[in-house]
Amino acid sequence: MDFFVNLVIAAISSGTPLLFAVLGGILSERSGVVFLGAEGTMLIGAVVSCLAFVHTGSLTLAIAAAVGAAGAFGLAHAFLSVTLRANQIVCGLALTLFGTGLSAYLGKPVAGQALAVSMPRVKLPWLEPIPFVGPILANLDILVWLSFSLVIALYLYMYKTSWGLHLRAVGDNPATSDAMGLSVDRIRYVHVIAGSMLMGLAGAYLILVYSPNWMEGMTSGRGWIAIALIILAGWNPLYALGGAYLFGGLDALGFRLQLMEIGIPSYFLKMLPYIVTILVLMAAGWRGRNKPSIEPKALGVPYVREQRF
């Protein structure tokens, strides 16, 4: 029992940065803009957050700085891909490379410096007696609770409000949305920027909670995993929760299986999260093969009024 409780707690802490990034990616992609800059944006979020914390000592400012810097990245991506209608894949890759290099440069003065930071935790002692769920939920930090509420808020926003309907309409059929009187460009700008802000939050979580000292390239590929998880989640915030924790949980499970000495090589266990992600993607693809695609139909296509594709 303890084994599973500990595993779920480990899955949550490892999955939370992924969850923020996946939610951000969903927002951007639902408006029809592919955002491959996740890795670079997370790194920028992390390094700016670290610098802000070192200079001000304030957690709120550190988080705000990460969100702001990542928002600027989102603005750049929106400008390139929406206003200038550049190839979104290329812009995203450029942002990732740029973010990786820039974060390494900005991080030089604080590299290897330990941050004396502790994220406030939400203590709910009255939950403890509930078996299994109690010990998991009783002592989580506030950013985890923020991620929970974001999942629900984004779900309600996307499926239960007219703004959400507009968002999905722009992602599926910008020409019709335009004819309806919606501003395609404005909606795309807002969601790309909001999405990249969430990716910045993912970077802030990494450095402020998960591993409190800046190291070059500390995301080590988590941005790319987040992009795969967007597809796994079918662009739905609720499934994003499952996808992020599935990945985080398998990540944690690998080490636990090593300790059980069941004879599976550690190299193989390290592949486990990736293999399962591929399998789940295949299974989802197989089940949905006769149904209409759930992908936003205008994803990756710049919108030009009056132009037919």
Partner: peptide, 25 residues
């Protein structure tokens, strides 16, 4: 002495996960 392999030299997030698996034991 329980040993787990992180198969990394430098990946703080993975190494933390490996450490936690031992701490949970």
């Amino acid at each position: 002495v329980s040993v787990v392999w992180s198969n990394t030299w430098f990946d703080p997030a993975t190494e933390r996960q490996a450490a936690i698996s031992l701490l949970d034991q």
